[in-house]
Structures are given as structure tokens and as C-alpha cells.
Simulated assay, not measured.
Amino acid sequence: MIRVENLSKSFGSFTAVDNISFDVGKGEIFAFLGPNGAGKTTTIKMLTTLMQPTSGKIWLDGLNAMDGAANKHLARKSFGIVFQDPSLDGDMTGQENLELHGVLYHVPRRQARERIENLLKLFELWDRRDVQVKKYSGGMKRRLEIARGFLHTPKILFLDEPTLGLDPQSRNQLWAQVKQLNEQEQVTVFLTTHYMDEAERVAHRVAVIDHGKGVALGTPAEIKERTGTETLEEAFLALTGTEIRDESADPAAMMRQFAQMWRR
């Protein structure tokens, strides 16, 4: 469903992503892990057509996503995105936020109504559908954003730190709901997270990137075996070191950039 071949991105003399390659199969939950500043956000920008690679190729659902504006537009129709920072309209209700998304993605009205009801019930938001989003808790907002990402029945869903800041109960609930849709609809899920226990629990396979280079790829069990560790967190530290990294990415800017592309 996703194929990345020799992908690189440089900014002047700095190489943010350095010749990485990987494949993600249909219906797979794939965790893309790395320390802050490792190149994760730059990679997601390229995968979601927000940024042109310096070199390399990207295929999404068999489509060369970098081959001209027409292919980029078709590729965008095949995926949904949920970035770290909130992107909901707080003055609109939960249902209105989803209805707007349906219009932007040209989901037929009758189909959208049915899909919205099903998603709001699955994510346990149906009883709050007519409440303004600014009155939602943090966990409710994240569930609504992920429900919105599923609304147009994407083949691929990109989740960038989807459970950041949520309590363990909310995290477990959210992943149970995502896994249910992943299994029922065979949606490919490409996620980033700093919660290694989460990645170990939900991901079928994991890729680790550090300083722009791919350093590991396989199932959590395979990566633990390779590093001689008992947990994925220990394996991650063995592969990437223990020094503290700074984060410079701006997910909100990514969402604004993506919205601008759709309006063109």
C-alpha cells in the first residue's frame, strides 16, 4: 500500500532524510519511530505530498505520488491524516466538523450521514454530537479527529503522535477503536509515537529512523531479538542512544499547508 524507495530530503548542506526504503502492506499497522529531529516529520511530509523529495520515489496504493500534480491530487484522496496539533473548529459541534470534512472530500451526503453516525457511535461521541468541540475533553477531541480521518473511507491513515498527552485509559480505548476499523476495513495505518509500549502492542511492524537514516525494520519481536533486549523501548534506546533531542517540527503548519493544497 505504501512503497518508499531510496527517499532523501536535503535542506542545503543538511540531510534530514537519507536514502530510506521500506514497504507497508495493505491492512498493516506500521509504526515509524525515531528520536526528536530524526526525520520522521519530514518523511511524513513527503509521504503526504506536502514536500517534494530531493530524490527517491513514493508509491501510495500503486500510484507514483510524486509524478505530477494530477497524481498528487489522486494520492491525497486515498489517505487521511491526523497530526499532533489540534485542527478541529472549536466553535462547531462534533457532527458539524465531520460534515465539513465530508464536503471537502466530496463524500455523498447520504453516505456521509450514515458514516458520521457510525463513527461517532464507535468512538463514543454520538451523545455529544451537538456539543461545541471547545467543550470536549482532550481525549474526546482526539477521538473526533481520528473519526474524521476515517470518514472518507481512506485506504491509508497517517497518525502523527495520535495519543500524545492522553491518559492510559484514553489511549487504550482509542487504539481499540482504531484497530477495530483497521481489521474491518483493512485500512493501512502509518503511525508515529514516542510511546514504545504502544508501538509494541499495536504495530505489526516497526521502522526506526535516526539522524535521517533507517536503522531497523521488522516486527517488534525481531527488533528485540536483534538488539538482545526485552522491550521495544530498550531496543529503541540501544539503536538510537540515550541523549536528549530537540523537536523542531510544526505539525500545525503541516495541516495548514495540506488544507491550502486542497483549496487550490
Rank of each mutant, 00 (worst) to 15 (best):
I2Y: 06
L7P: 09
L7M: 10
S8V: 14
K9L: 10
S13G: 11
V17S: 01
N19K: 10
I20P: 04
S21A: 03
S21H: 03
S21F: 08
V24H: 06
G27I: 12
E28K: 04
L33K: 08
L33F: 10
L33D: 05
G34D: 02
P35T: 09
N36T: 09
K40W: 07
T41K: 09
M46N: 01
T48W: 02
T49C: 01
T49Y: 05
M51Q: 12
M51S: 12
K57F: 06
L60M: 12
G62C: 04
L63I: 15
D67G: 05
A70T: 10
K72R: 13
H73S: 10
A75P: 07
R76A: 08
F79L: 07
I81S: 09
I81R: 04
I81T: 01
V82F: 01
Q84S: 04
S87Y: 06
S87F: 03
L88W: 09
L88T: 00
M92N: 02
T93V: 03
E96D: 06
G102E: 05
G102H: 01
V103H: 12
V103Y: 11
A112G: 12
R115N: 08
R115F: 07
I116W: 08
L120S: 08
L120Y: 03
L122T: 12
L125W: 02
W126S: 11
R128A: 11
R129P: 04
V131E: 10
Q132M: 01
Q132T: 01
Q132I: 00
Q132S: 00
Q132N: 00
V133I: 02
V133P: 01
G139Y: 03
M140T: 10
K141S: 10
R142H: 05
L144T: 13
A147K: 13
R148Q: 12
G149T: 14
T153E: 15
L159P: 04
P162D: 11
L164I: 15
D167R: 14
D167K: 15
Q169W: 14
R171W: 06
N172M: 15
Q173D: 15
A176E: 15
V178R: 10
Q180V: 11
N182R: 05
E185P: 07
Q186G: 00
V187C: 13
T192W: 01
T192Y: 07
H194M: 07
R201C: 02
V202K: 04
V202W: 03
R205K: 12
D210S: 06
G212L: 03
G212D: 05
G212S: 01
V215R: 00
G218R: 04
P220L: 02
A221R: 12
I223A: 00
K224P: 01
K224D: 03
E225R: 13
T227P: 06
A235K: 02
L239A: 07
G241F: 06
T242D: 03
I244G: 02
R245T: 14
R245V: 12
E247W: 03
A249T: 14
A249P: 08
A249E: 08
D250G: 01
P251I: 02
P251A: 07
A252L: 08
M254R: 10
R256S: 12
Q260A: 15
R263C: 10
